[in-house]
């Protein structure tokens, strides 16, 4: 369960998020809005990457006073729209770092990493590749594997389908569905296709929460708002 109350984010005198509040216990949840609506900023505030005022509670516990890594240890993680390049770092080292907090021995961790990378549609050989030498789509899949390995309570996915080709799209959807079995997945998106896999959605416009409700309803409203 995530509960956000009165989030305000200001940058250079401009209000990016204006008293945003929502609460959801749904495992597939979309944050919808046009470019500049504040979707990614909201995601960054939940993760602690942006500092904002207001309250963010995960399963009733306040986390808005915590640093990024402390929030991660409380079970919140985020996959970027455009993942970092990590020059020289191998995929396996990144994924090992992602699951370092799991209470498993090294062999079990390696098995888990291998299984996870394959679920994203990449084979095990990718583990020895350098992240910076992967294509954007491949890097995106490594990012999804990485958040999955944290085994978090809340996963925020920022535009998970960007950079993903049509052939891999279904695999990614399948992967996200699987993530949602064990974690609450908040998906930042302006894609109808991605949103429609969620149960509930929040519509943002100009930094304000316009409406929270069943995704189907919110998508209709989104169409009207766009007009």
């Amino acid at each position: 369960m995530i509960e956000v109350q009165n989030l305000v984010l200001e940058k250079n005198g401009r209000r990016i998020l204006d008293n945003v509040s929502f609460k959801t216990n749904k495992n597939l949840f979309a944050i919808i809005g046009a470019n500049g609506a504040g979707k990614t900023s909201l995601a960054y505030c939940i993760m602690g990457i942006e500092k904002c005022s207001g309250s963010i509670k995960v399963d009733g516990e306040e986390i808005n006073n915590l640093k990024v890594y402390e929030r991660a240890k409380k079970g919140v993680t985020l996959a970027w729209q455009i993942p970092a390049e990590f020059e020289g770092m191998k995929v396996k080292d990144y994924l090992k770092a992602s699951c370092r907090c799991l209470n498993l021995n090294e062999n079990k961790k390696e098995e888990l990493i291998e299984r996870t990378i394959e679920k994203t549609g990449l084979n095990r050989e990718y583990l020895n590749r350098e992240i910076s030498k992967l294509s954007g789509g491949e890097r995106k899949r490594v990012e999804l594997a990485s958040v999955s390995l944290v085994k978090p309570r809340i996963i925020i996915l920022d535009e998970p389908d960007s950079g993903i080709d049509l052939i891999s799209f279904d695999k990614i959807i399948e992967f996200i569905m699987e993530l949602s079995k064990e974690s609450q997945v908040l998906i930042v998106t302006h894609s109808k296709k991605i949103s429609s896999m969620t149960e509930e959605a929040l519509l943002l416009k100009n930094g304000r929460a316009i409406k929270l409700g069943p995704t189907e309803e919110i998508l209709k409203l989104y169409d009207e708002v766009k007009k």
């Binding site: 993760m47 990457i49 640093k67 990024v68 890594y69 929030r71 991660a72 240890k73 919140v76 993680t77 985020l78 970027w80 993942p83 970092a84 390049e85 990590f86 770092a97 992602s98 370092r100 907090c101 990485s146 958040v147 944290v150």
Partner: peptide, 14 residues
């Protein structure tokens, strides 16, 4: 790189 740093922090690394 700030983004690299924040990504790893978001996985629980100090």
């Amino acid at each position: 790189d700030k983004k690299e740093l924040q990504t790893l922090e978001a996985r629980g690394l100090t």
